[in-house]
Every structure is written in structure tokens, then in C-alpha cells.
Design a protein around this nucleic acid. Structure first.
Lengths: 138, 138
DNA sequence: CGCGGAAATGTGCATATACACGCATAGTGA
DNA sequence: TCACTATGCGTGTATATGCACATTTCCGCG
């Protein structure tokens, strides 16, 4: 081999696939005005109820500061509200608002469509399994 | 089901895995001063030789403007050089410099280590196959 | 040769992601 | 009560990513 630059990079392949899939989901969610990342945060919040930023980040396996910044556009649009913690003054508790709940509902059918389009060609379980394995390996 | 927010999102799972893997690769590449994205671009350039930005983006399946901006830090550090096209004045041809080549070489062992760590737990072929399927489905 | 469409870029804007620091509050042991 | 440590956050900086628009240059046709 004249060039070692031909060996495939697992990380790059993964990033590339993620870009493609994300673009597809974002396109599908377009009418709802949400991106898949934002939709995911809203859904998580819906599941967890009011949650401090750090815990929210942990649940999403996101860097804390990343989560905090990802919340900004959502707060600006009134989809979430951020309140000071009651027991602990350091905490900033994120709360899903009614408009936020409505945004989830509005986006849901588009999200399902995207999910279905992918599932038609790729076993969702396979993705989940591989994702888990990759996370464990990292 | 009281909450539809529990159904797993294929895209989010994938993004999460990619974050984890990227973090691992970036950590491994740390000593080289390159990120995995930058390393990938340099390697691509090494494979292709001098290439206009748009074609480089197409090869990497990256948005054109994204590629252009990803080149900025590399150019700033002198790892690539950007010259005006000779035949076509519109083109901006990206060229791998000697320091760029050296950077690849320096990063290579760290990259291999990261690759090996992942490969020990996850079949690289499986990732590649799934990535391809996902891209095709998007 | 001149014109109109196509191709290659650049720019502005918005979000996503993570690391290094620094601040404020909570909790704990002497 | 008073350090000391641990915890929850915010900010600064840098990169990564993509869309919408505007600009420049090329090329084929009349």
C-alpha cells in the first residue's frame, strides 16, 4: 500500500452517517420548526419532568455546557422555562411549558415519518445495539 | 403508554454514539493537536492530492460551506494551502503542505490506537455496513 | 462577440459540541 | 462557627454543521 490514507476511519464513517441521518430528520421536522436535537431535549424533559440542567445533560449523555446552550433557543421561544432551584439555590431547573408540550405534539407525526423511513431500510434494533456497543467501547 | 416520549429515536441514539466515539478519538489524537475531523480532511487530501473545495466536500459527504470553514484552522496552522485554480479562476484548490503531511504522520499512531480500541469491542465492518445503510436510507 | 444559465465560492446567521476556568452555594468536620 | 471540599453553573474560546443569499467566473449559443 503506497498510501496509509486509504484505511477507513470508524469515527469518520460514523460521523458521516450521523450527518446524513440528522439532515433527514431535520428536513422531516422542518414544518414543526424544531431540529431533532431540540425535539430530543423536549421529549426528554417530557419524560423526566422538571429537571436541573446537569441531570438533564447526564440523561442525554451530553456535555453539561452543551446542554445549557442547547436550551437557549428553546427558552427564547418559550418552549421551556428555567427556574431557580428551590431547595438548592445553585440549581437551574428546566421546565417544559405548555407551548413546549404543544411543539412536541406538532412535531411528533413528522418525527414518526422520519423514523419509519429509516426503519424501512435499517433494523432499528441494530442501530441501538451498535450505538450501545460503541458507547461502551468509548 | 401514558407517554409517547419513551420511544427511542434512531437519530438521537446515533448522535449520542457519535459524540462518544468522537470524544474518544479526539482524546486519543490530543497529543497530535488534531481533531478527528481535521485528521480526516488531511488524510482525504493526502489521498486525492490537490483538490478544489467543492470536490473535497463531495468526497467527504460534507456540506460545501462546512468543508470550507473546516479548512480554516488547517490553513491558519499551515497544514494546508489554498491556491487559486489555474484553469478555472473560480476554483480554490486545497493543497496538503509538508507540515500537513508531517501532522498526519505524527497523528497516525494515536489514531490507530483509537481505531484498535474500538475494533476490539465492535466489528469495524458492522459499523461500516450500518453507516452505508443509514446513508442510503437518508 | 455578447448573453444567459451553470458552476465554484463567499458570507451571514443559527445551532451543536466540548474544554478550561472561575464563581457561588451546599454540606461537612473540627 | 469556620475553613474546606464538593457540587451546580456560567463564560470564553474554538470547532463543526448546514441553510439562504449574493458574487464571480465559465461556457455554450445565437
Amino acid at each position: 500500500m503506497d498510501h496509509p490514507s486509504t484505511e477507513p476511519c470508524t469515527c469518520s464513517a460514523l460521523r458521516r452517517a450521523t450527518r446524513a441521518v440528522t439532515t433527514a430528520y431535520d428536513a422531516a421536522l422542518r414544518p414543526s420548526g424544531l431540529r431533532v436535537t431540540q425535539f430530543a431535549i423536549l421529549r426528554l424533559l417530557d419524560r423526566l419532568g422538571p429537571t436541573p440542567v446537569t441531570r438533564l445533560a447526564a440523561e442525554a449523555a451530553l456535555e453539561r455546557t452543551t446542554m445549557a446552550r442547547n436550551l437557549d433557543p428553546l427558552e427564547r421561544r418559550g418552549l421551556v422555562r428555567i427556574a431557580a432551584g428551590e431547595a438548592d439555590a445553585r440549581e437551574r431547573v428546566v421546565v417544559l411549558t405548555e407551548p413546549g408540550r404543544a411543539a412536541i405534539a406538532a412535531a411528533m407525526p413528522h418525527w414518526r415519518a422520519a423514523q419509519a423511513r429509516i426503519a424501512a431500510r435499517v433494523e432499528p434494533g441494530a442501530v441501538a445495539a451498535l450505538a450501545e456497543a460503541l458507547i461502551a467501547a468509548s
